[in-house]
């Protein structure tokens, strides 16, 4: 049942996603805005990484760059981007179309972005299979049914004939996941797919994604602003701020022993079930940087209580704290 959905060529230990010095500039304004300032990422098959950050941190832009979904004329992507051995930035029209969906697929916060409102969902999935694999429509429908069962949509056969608006929010999200998996991708990109869902539905979708990742050997990059969601879906967490990955490590390390002052501030300002009432919340003063006019050095320096003049001398180098755990901060260990 799972075997045919799994991509045939996924070797257990291959480095699927290899990103070095990824930059994204938005053009068209008075001056270019650097939304992503040089991101390095590596991801193996079957590995899940959470990209944790606030609005404007560049997490969604990074994700879209991996699939070249940003408007070509108004953006400039720099750096090295290899996914499954392909140079993503060099892909031309036809190979790019095969790459999207066939190697990398994406799910969104709003299923409305991925599903066409005027086609039955079963037909949308079948069409993707026909396009990518040259299969017949009937074969495509058979794959759609298999996928609907895989994502645990009740009465799957009947639901294939639904239009998106005939489904509830959680069901639509499952249908979108089925569509994303239609062409057996190796990498699944998830852009806050559960943010708009109710709590009791969110956890169902998170558990489903985790199960699919395990069973199908998918590499998953999951963008979220929610620490709990990041921990639930991913083994590794990358914290993003002002267009840079400021801290990367296992979820246990980053959440349990955060090193970067931003990560520490973010975790300290969270309200937990044990936060004492009537006590003032710890806050990070100020607001995130204006990307059109970024700080000269560390993007967090203007809000950082540990900042020293040297923090403005350029982007801090990565400081290794443990194997696989690193932070971009010259003041690591200062307090």
């Amino acid at each position: 049942m799972n075997a045919p959905l799994r991509h045939p060529e996924v070797a257990a230990d291959a480095a699927l996603v290899h990103v070095r010095g990824l930059t994204v500039d938005f053009l068209g304004g008075r001056k270019p805005v650097r939304a992503v300032g040089g991101v390095d990422l590596d991801l193996k098959a079957g590995e899940a990484l959470a990209l944790l950050g606030e609005s404007g941190s560049g997490k969604s832009v990074t994700l879209r760059a991996l699939m070249r979904l940003l408007p070509e004329k108004r953006t400039r992507i720099g750096g090295t981007l290899r996914i499954d051995g392909q140079d993503v930035l060099a892909l031309r029209k036809k190979s790019l179309a095969a790459f999207r969906g066939g190697t990398v697929a994406m799910i969104f916060q709003d299923p409305g972005l991925a599903l066409d409102p005027v086609y039955r969902i079963g037909d949308q999935i079948a069409e993707a299979v026909v396009r990518h694999e040259g299969a017949s429509h009937a074969q495509g429908r058979a794959r759609a049914l298999e996928l609907f069962e895989r994502v645990q949509i009740p009465s799957a056969a009947r639901r294939l004939d639904n239009y998106p608006h005939e489904m509830s929010g959680g069901m639509r999200q499952r249908a979108m996941i089925a569509l994303a998996l239609a062409c057996r991708p190796k990498v699944l990109l998830a852009d806050e797919p559960t943010t708009a869902l109710d709590a009791t539905v969110q956890i169902q979708i998170l558990l489903l994604l985790r199960e699919l990742q395990r069973d199908l050997g998918l590499a998953v990059i999951f963008v979220t602003h929610d620490v709990g969601v990041a921990v639930q879906v991913a083994d590794r967490v990358a914290v993003m701020y002002g267009g840079h990955l400021v801290e990367v490590g296992s979820s246990g390390e980053v959440i349990g022993a955060p090193a970067h002052p931003y990560t520490r501030g973010l975790l300290a300002s969270r309200i937990t079930p044990d936060s004492p009432k009537g006590v003032r919340l710890v806050t990070i003063p100020g607001s995130p940087p204006d990307l059109a006019d970024p700080p000269p050095g560390c993007p967090f320096a203007p809000r950082c209580t540990l900042a020293v003049p040297a923090c403005d001398d350029g982007l801090p180098e990565r400081v290794a704290l443990a194997p696989g755990h690193a932070a971009r901060c010259i003041r690591v260990g200062a307090a």
Partner: peptide, 17 residues
């Protein structure tokens, strides 16, 4: 969801919407 990797939820408390 808990922020403790050791306390991940393994089964959804409710099914359906």
């Amino acid at each position: 969801p808990s922020t403790d990797p050791a306390a991940r939820i393994e089964e959804a408390p409710l099914t359906g919407d």
